[in-house]
Nucleic acid binder design. Structure first.
Length: 652
RNA sequence: GCCCCGGUAGCUCAGCUGGAUAGAGCAUCGGUCUUCUAAACCGAGGGUCGCAGGUUCGAAUCCUGCCCGGGGUGCCA
């Protein structure tokens, strides 16, 4: 049991005579916010006293008198308005460290009641190359999988591929009309990506050509409205001022839309070849949609093409997953659920949940104006239908207790409706959760794009990170009196640092927030980065090399941890908080809690490293104790990073 | 129009769902290599937590209003 839960468990029965449910009060026992107060603090006395009409300090004192933690705590003090501060006995901490040292799981308990958890993440559209937009889902989702798996739950990391949508119609149409056979034979996926891009571009071209005059007209009419209202508006009238501001705002966004539309159009008109293609295929958008429809209806030719393309596309994205060290337990894309969609809609209709509205089949929910559309006017199903069929499959076939959707925050409304629909449909036992996350931004605070405005490919992003890391590795090693890394090693370290940097930078932010992507910061050797933590690990390994210690023997030996310096105690306590940290990460699936703890651990280690010499320590018992602390720190860092799919190296 | 999410140090971000003097990292300034990796360490300065009210022993956190930014909003996913 980790230190925090030891305190909580001791407190739990004491609440019996005060409240029915102690849980919220036990939550109020947490790490001390300032180490001068002690190791942990309890804040429940104030709110509880209020509820009971007592004096908070008296109540806190009552608790302190009853708590039986003499073996564990050196002191329990009531402070301020009624805080209880706990400080552990060093003997108890060192004993716990002894247990941790002997435990392969580093004192992280296995879940008492393992659950079956589906983590739905990554889910790229296979018809186009992966880009930064897929980074967060992939990295966060994979981390969640690793952590819940470590806790002993049955986990299915499922890549719900977009492999059945309109994009496939586009590449099929492109294949039939614009294929460069030679390129396709040499690099099929690149050629398919080119075809997708081309068809998309030409479709958009026609669409935008129609929209541009509409946009212009809208802007004109709004501008006219603006001048008119400006003239007659009373400048003191707040409502009117606000209305004017709104119009101005609308005009600005329309102008932006117009600008981007004109950009896209001129990209085509600027190229004689593209323009000729555009003119030659005025109906391209409709025709591409028809290819999709044919595919969905089971057209032999299209189905054969789809079957030919799909493995190629999957192989391409697998390459990216390979570089990221991401593996899935299941890859059940949209196409897999295709056969069940009609049944789903029929069932919804039969249960009176779905009804026809404006030509589409919809499920309505009380608080929502927008319907949940399960079948479009043209008969096609939507991702809403697929998601419902998927829930059914996951519950019926996989016996899922919980499904976590690691998906962009922008889809929160979809999930709200999906979950409500699923519950009404009968799946009200399962824990459905949208693990939402924010956007990766560029320096301009707009979604991260290349200078030319294209989305950044994930593969090239990883590539660049490794290259930049290699640069740093070279500089670092060359600066040493005698460089110690050979070519292979340098490259291995560069990959570990480069990939680690991207992942860590993503995970260290609260997943709900947007964050700004910054190469310099994420690859910094100092500060809250993967590199810094990996470096701490390498330094520890350096110590073991220097003293020529056998780490395995150390774990089985009879040595014990002793505290001779504050830094040792601080490090020890920090190490013992590993289990508590994992617990709180899983509580709301927030990997940034883990990165923060790892960073603190690395910091605690460097303080220890600076103050407590290992190699030159003359006292054998102290030296051994320090070696144990080093070993534990290394293991905890290695394990912690591994839970995020980040590697370590004993030299760097 | 309606709905959702943000606004915290110069910058990038935490802040564990109401607790003690609001924290990190960069950046800035000043110190550290004859001792286990200086890819490091130690120290200093830096804040009207968007604004205004309210709730209470106590508010960055909860409520109301306003300002600013982003996103979503019936047939893309």
């Amino acid at each position: 049991m980790h230190p925090l839960s030891v305190i909580r468990e001791q407190l739990r029965p004491l609440f019996e005579e005060y409240v029915d449910d102690p849980a919220p009060y036990l939550e109020m026992v947490r790490p001390a916010q300032d180490s001068k107060f002690g190791d942990f603090q309890a804040n429940f006395a104030m709110p509880l006293a209020k509820q009971l009409g007592k004096n908070p300090r008296d109540l806190a004192t009552e608790f302190v008198d009853k708590i039986k933690l003499d073996d564990v705590c050196e002191s329990m003090e009531v402070a301020g308005p009624g805080f209880i501060n706990f400080k552990f006995k060093s003997d108890w901490l060192t004993a716990q460290l002894g247990t941790m040292q002997a435990d392969e799981r580093l004192s992280v308990p296995v879940a008492e009641s393992p659950r079956t958890i589906i983590v739905d993440y990554s889910a790229p559209n296979v018809a186009k190359p992966m880009h930064v937009g897929h980074l967060r889902s992939t990295v966060i989702g994979n981390t969640i999988c690793r952590i819940v798996n470590f806790l002993g739950h049955k986990v299915y990391g499922d890549n719900h591929l977009g492999d059945w949508g309109t994009q496939f119609g586009m590449i099929i149409y492109g294949y039939k009309n614009f294929l460069n056979r030679e390129s396709f034979e040499q690099a099929p996926v690149d050629e398919l990506a080119r075809l997708y891009k081309l068809v998309n571009q030409l479709s958009e071209f026609h669409d935008l050509n129609r929209k541009i005059p509409e946009l212009q007209a809208k802007i004109e009419s709004l501008s006219a409205q603006l001048t008119e209202q400006e003239e007659k508006a009373d400048p003191k009238d707040k409502q009117a001022r606000k209305a004017l501001g709104k119009i101005k705002n609308d005009i600005a966004t329309l102008k932006q839309d117009l600008l981007s539309a004109e950009d896209k159009v001129s990209a085509v008109t600027a190229s004689p070849e593209l323009l000729a293609q555009a003119n030659g295929y005025p109906d391209i958008a409709r025709l591409a949609r028809e290819e999709t429809a044919k595919l969905h209806k089971g057209d032999e030719e299209n189905l054969a093409l789809w079957k030919q393309f799909l493995p190629l596309c999957i192989a391409a994205i697998d390459e990216v997953y390979g570089r990221l060290g991401v593996q899935f337990d299941l890859v059940l894309g949209e196409s897999y659920f295709q056969p069940f969609l009609q049944e789903v809609v029929d069932d919804l209709k039969q249960k009176g949940m779905a009804q026809q509205s404006q030509g589409a089949i919809c499920v309505f929910h009380d608080q929502n104006e927008a319907p949940f559309i399960v079948q479009k006017t043209d008969g096609a199903f939507t991702y809403a239908t697929t998601d419902l069929a998927t829930i059914r499959y996951r519950v019926e076939e996989l016996k899922a207790d919980s499904i976590l959707y690691v998906v962009d925050a922008r889809q929160s409304e979809h999930f709200k409706l999906l979950f409500e629909t699923a519950a009404k449909w009968g799946y009200d036992e399962i824990d459905l959760r949208h693990i939402s996350f924010g956007t990766v931004l560029g320096d301009d605070k707009r979604p991260f794009k290349t200078r030319s405005g294209d989305t950044v490919g994930l593969e090239s992003l990883i590539e660049e990170s490794i290259q930049r890391a290699r640069q740093i590795v070279n500089e670092g090693d060359d600066a040493k009196p005698s460089p110690e890394l050979d070519e292979t090693m340098r490259q291995r370290v560069a990959e570990m640092v480069g990939v680690g940097a991207i992942k860590y930078a993503d995970l260290r932010h609260n997943r709900e927030s947007d964050y700004v992507f910054n190469w310099t910061k994420m690859l910094a050797t100092n500060g809250d980065t993967a590199t810094y933590i990996q470096y701490a690990y390498a330094r520890i390994c350096g110590i073991f090399r220097e003293v020529d210690a056998d780490r395995e023997a150390l774990r089985e030996g009879d040595g014990a941890v002793v505290f001779t310096h504050d830094a040792e105690r601080a490090l020890g306590l920090q190490l013992l908080r590993f289990a508590e940290t994992i617990e709180s990460v899983v509580n709301d699936y927030r990997p940034n809690i883990l990165t923060a703890w790892l960073f603190e651990t690395a910091n605690a280690f460097t303080t220890f490293y600076g103050n407590c010499h290992v190699k030159n320590e003359p006292d054998a018992a102290i030296k051994k104790s320090r070696l144990i602390l080093c070993d534990l720190t290394a293991r905890v860092i290695d394990q912690g990073l591994a839970l995020m799919g980040i590697q370590t190296s004993d030299k760097m």
